[in-house]
Amino acid sequence: MDRDMIEVKKLVHEYIRRDEDGNVESINRAIDNVNFSVKKGDFVAILGANGSGKSTLAKHINAILHPTEGSIWVNGLNTAEENNIWDIRQTAGMVFQNPDNQIVATVVEEDVGFGPENLGVPTDEIWERVEQSLEAVGMLEYRTQSPNKLSGGQKQRVAIAGIMAMKPQCIVLDEPTAMLDPNGRKEVISTVRELNKKEKVTVLLITHHMDEVTFADKVIVMEHGKIVMQGTPRDIFSRVDEIKQYRLDVPQVTELAFELSKAGLALPEGILTIDELVDSLIKLKQSNIDKAK
């Protein structure tokens, strides 16, 4: 049976705060009965405003956190079992938000080699993998430089290469663009997209930038630890009012199209790109001209 890459079943996670005597002071339910699955090779995006529980969810997939209730299966491995932890972390690599705080070494290529070193990969193969992964993220020419001299986007690509060198089947990116400028964001997103297409790596991208995920296979929207919307980007983004209610923005083009159709233009729902909007506007004009004739 071909199992899904990630299966999350009835997941609950509670942050429990205790006082000095160990009595429970407060319980914060960060994830509340979440169910979803990610198919192999898919590009899935999880959206949510601050405090919606999306980062907590990401840490579960890498077995950094353990479920309070329910279970998570990564490529058929249960994250709750201690013996599976290292296999899971190798299967599902994780890229974090702050590019500085996840680079270990003082030279780019040594940092990319860090993961394979931990896995006990033989020296010759480490060099091969480092070269391949730096090539895959387009950072090969910076291999002997110090990470301190790179831009945020470049650092984040090095971090992605560091994960790729471990040959994962799945990458979880926890707001990888939150600390980057617009150029850096584009760089990182197109790199991830490329890896998903060319290397067939399953991608789970966590973000609150809507315009980064218009090409995703599936979008999941979270709010207060619950999944509130789930579907294709077109599905999700056609429900502009609902999305706004979850403190999220829709892509600018989508919002413009939404406002235009509210004002009476007969535009299709869920327009995601500028080209689509232009096309449908031209079509609209054409049909108006035809009618006038």
């Binding site: 840490k59 890498n62 950094i64 290292w86 972390r89 190798q90 690599g93 994780m94 974090f96 702050n98 705080n101 996840q102 270990v104 860090f114 993961g115 931990n118 896995l119 560091g162 994960i163 471990m166």
Partner: peptide, 12 residues
């Protein structure tokens, strides 16, 4: 953060 990132990259 770094400790978490290192663990996520299988450092043990």
């Amino acid at each position: 953060d770094l400790a978490m990132a290192m663990e996520a990259r299988c450092y043990r």
